[in-house]
Design a protein around this nucleic acid. Structure first.
Lengths: 142, 142
DNA sequence: ATTGGTGCAAAGGATTTGCAGTCTA
DNA sequence: TAGACTGCAAATCCTTTGCACCAAT
């Protein structure tokens, strides 16, 4: 069901393989960051990633976290989620899924909905192709 | 096809009615901002709105533009579009539509796709209800 | 040696906030 | 007069950048 067929949590050796698959050289910092991300499918901000990685006893700088997440998002290792005004989230869930965003709490959760496949692709302008389709249900608890 | 049945461009008197409909008191600044927004369906950043309104010979401060757009988005006058990392866009198009975002150019365009109605609503947690559903097709021109 | 990667601190830039002044019912 | 609104400037805070140092081929 997912492209990468990941079994969470991903072990270090699998992380290295994955990075190589994406043509990313597995430096110490990148591996540690990816290990943290792929403990389980999750949505994390750069700050949380920094905290998590350093909290696990590794040394990484903020700049490297930002650089690395930009790289990962670009290569398709994670998906950037721009929903919250405050910050960018990075999604380590490789399965096809949608998001539920609670505007009151700021909570972001995954939704799986098979019927969403019925969505037809739109007519595209010349020369462009779809990278991905983001579907976000904004909800309120009021 | 759209809730408000707007005919662009919206005239001043219609803008006033619309704001009242949304329970927003139509101050001079708010009316001028809304007039600018509803000249036609469009996606504008706060900065562009400020430029546009002041460029039309009106006096509005940056803070008021931000306050007003926050208010408009909250009340449902416009829709906030969070796609571009750089800034928030406000969408004055009241029709049901989706977005096409070109990651290479930063261009944001509307898409109308009837078949999208086939999307089923997801199962929701207790006590929450959907405000709206955002669908964004991210495309590349490479 | 050359290229790529990292880290620190400073810079950048959109948005928010505090607060005083203004308007309006 | 009270409450709502506006505007200015300062503050905030996420993210990017410049640049020196380090690593690996």
């Amino acid at each position: 069901m997912n492209t990468l067929n990941i079994t969470f949590p991903l072990e270090r050796s699998d992380v290295v393989s994955m990075l190589q698959y994406f043509k990313i050289s597995p430096t110490r910092q990148r591996v540690e960051i990816a290990e943290y991300l792929f403990q389980r499918p999750q949505h994390l901000s750069a700050e949380k990633i920094l905290d998590g990685v350093t909290g696990a006893g590794n040394r990484v700088s903020r700049a490297t976290v930002y650089n690395t997440m930009g790289l990962f998002a670009n290569k398709g290792v994670v998906r950037e989620v721009l929903i919250d005004r405050e910050r960018v989230f990075y999604d380590s869930n490789p399965d096809v899924h949608q998001h539920l965003y609670n505007v009151d709490t700021g909570e972001l959760t995954d939704v799986y909905d098979a019927q969403v496949n019925l969505v037809s692709e739109p007519e595209l302008p010349e020369g462009v192709r779809i990278i991905n389709t983001d579907i976000v249900y904004k909800v309120t608890s009021k």
